[in-house]
Design a protein around this nucleic acid. Structure first.
Ligand code: FES
Ligand code: FES
Lengths: 145, 145
DNA sequence: TTAATAAAAGATGAATAACTCTTTTATTTT
DNA sequence: AAAATAAAAGAGTTATTCATCTTTTATTAA
C-alpha cells in the first residue's frame, strides 16, 4: 500500500501526461494516455470521467477529441487532484487511525507525524500541475516503469 | 486511506498498549487490549497471533495468560512492526506507483517525495516501542478516540 | 446525412482488506 | 484430575478497491 491509492496514482500520472502532451487546442485520447502511463485503459477512463466532472480535466468527444487541461487547470495545485480522488484525510488524518487527530488528545506519533504530513501537504499545495509537467518536458522525469 | 493499513494501525496501537500495560511478568488479555485501543477483538487477535509468530510480541495461554513484550522487543524500533504488517514498500516505493523508484528514472515527485519518505523512515527506525510508551505513561498521549 | 471517432455510462467480475464466529489447544488453579 | 481460563487456529462473511467489458451518446469530418 502506498501513500496514495492506486486510483489516485493513475489520476496524478494521467494529469501530468495530459498536461505534457497537449498544447493549446490539442487533445489526447484515452488509449494514448493509458499506454503512456502504463495503466488499465477502462479503469483510467472511469477516473478521467470523474476528474472531468469535477473540472480538473476537460474533454471533447468525437474525432480529434480527447482530454486536455485548460489554462486554469494547469495552474491548479496537485493537491486538488489528490483531494478529488482520495479526499483530504491524507492531509488531516491521524497516522494511527484515531477518529480525530488533535492536539488535546494526541496519539504517540502525533507531533512527528504531523510534521511529515504537513510537508506532504505543502509539496502538493505549492506545486502546480504545470510545474510538474516542466520536468517531463525536459525529459528528466518519467511516468512509466 | 491512511499512510498505514488499518491492520497496521491496530498493530501499532496494540503494541503500544501492551508495552504500556505490562511490567515484568504481567500480561494483558486480548479483550482488554481490544477495548483499550478501540479495535474489533477477533480481528486484533489475528494480528497479534501474527506478531507473536514473528516474535514482535510474546504470549502465554491459560489463566493469567495474555500478551506481553519482552526486553528485546521493547527496544525494537517501530519500523519492525510496520514492516511485519505492511512490508517495507512504504520506505522504498514510488509515490506515483511506478514499478521501481529510481534516481535514473525518477517520477516528477521523486526528489521531494523521497525526502518525506525518508523522514518517516527515520522516525520509525530511530524510535523504539519503549520510547513511545513513555508518553503513554506520562498520560500525555492516547490510543483511542 | 452517413460513417467514423472518442468519451460517457453501466454492468459485471476479481482481488484484497477488513471483520466475525466457532472450534481447538494449551495452561493453570483448585 | 477437573474446571476454568485464555490464546491459537481456521473457516467464513462483508465491504472496498481495482479492473474489465459492453453499450450508448455525442461530436465531427467527409
Ligand atoms: S493524533 Fe495521531 S497523528 Fe495526530
Ligand atoms: S520514482 Fe517516484 S518516488 Fe522515486
Amino acid at each position: 500500500m502506498g501513500v496514495f491509492s492506486k486510483t489516485c496514482e493513475y489520476a496524478i500520472r494521467s494529469v501530468f501526461f495530459i498536461a505534457h502532451r497537449t498544447t493549446s487546442g490539442s487533445r489526447v485520447g484515452i488509449k494514448e494516455i493509458a499506454n503512456g502511463i502504463d495503466s488499465p485503459e477502462h479503469f483510467l477512463a472511469k477516473i478521467l470521467q470523474d476528474l472531468s466532472r469535477r473540472g480538473i480535466v476537460q474533454s471533447v468527444k468525437g474525432p480529434n477529441g480527447g482530454f486536455y487541461i485548460d489554462e486554469i487547470g494547469l495552474k491548479r495545485p496537485l493537491s486538488d487532484v489528490v483531494e478529488a480522488v482520495d479526499g483530504k484525510s491524507i492531509f488531516t488524518g491521524c497516522g494511527l487511525g484515531l477518529a480525530y487527530c488533535s492536539e488535546t488528545n494526541p496519539c504517540p506519533l502525533h507531533h512527528e507525524f504531523k510534521a511529515i504530513r504537513n510537508q506532504l501537504k505543502n509539496l502538493l499545495e505549492q506545486t502546480t500541475i504545470a510545474d510538474f509537467s516542466e520536468s517531463l518536458n525536459l525529459g528528466i522525469t518519467k511516468l512509466r516503469k
